[in-house]
Amino acid sequence: MQVPAPFEYERATGVDDAIALLDRLGSAARLVAGGHSLLPMMKLRLANLEYLIDINDLHGELGYIEVEPGQLRVGSMTRHRELLESDPLAEAFPIFRDAERVIADPVVRNRGTIGGSLCQADPSEDLSAVCTTLDASCLIRGSSGSREVTMAEFYRGPYETAVGDDEILIEIRIPVRPNGSSAYEKVERRAGDWAVVSCGAAVWMDGDVISDARVGLAAVGPNTTGIPAISEALRGKVPSEDLYAEAGAIAAENCTPSTDMRGSAEYKRHLANELTRRALRRSTARIHGQGV
């Protein structure tokens, strides 16, 4: 059994209480939600902190999926399992269910949260790629008030986010547009492993042509990456295999993978291409009512 170094434990009773505790305890404190990233890091003594603030009691306050006209709001304490099982979410953004089916395992999904996933800022993290793909924004709150940042602003590097020491991620907001669909593709060495590469895509159609399209990649750079060049290349075009291939080539060019135990940089670049094509193909098929 791996055991962490000594720490003090606090249990927040609500968002305001959590923020007050962060205010008081400063940078020596960390929030714990599902704990599936933080606790292993503590046991391996990679994360050493003085105070652990448990926010699991905030699930009542921050565990929700709300579909509204024009936008969908997900509370930061919403668990993976809730995201997986939500039909309204799957209807609006099938990419979520695609991704949740390949995130970790049921034990982790019962406990882990979307907020924890995003705040961990692991370059291989799946929900970060999903949120990047969907052009989500993040509502962050601290003692001095709330602010909303884009996904591009949210990530500051591997394991670094815009959330300050005395702040908490409250909500993820996703714009909802008509005539669109989305999909997620992941290659992993084993079920439940981090992605070798994964790719999200979202496509919106206007008649026969693509009105907008977005691609988000994980595990091919310091953070999950949206690739604006793909959006530019696809807008106004009729979907075709050639077009997907063009997008795949752009994805491969515009990422910065590195060689590690999960695969070589060359292979990951190849996957960025291949998975981009697949995710776009599947998104488009879904718009045309061709399930899967």
Partner: peptide, 24 residues
């Protein structure tokens, strides 16, 4: 169980050293 050139073991946890599950 792999090593880097300095002799660091790269398989020191079950996140790095993969063993199969029922799904494989």
């Amino acid at each position: 169980i792999a090593f880097d050139e300095d002799g660091n073991c790269l398989g020191g946890s079950l996140m790095d050293y993969l063993i199969p599950t029922a799904l494989e």
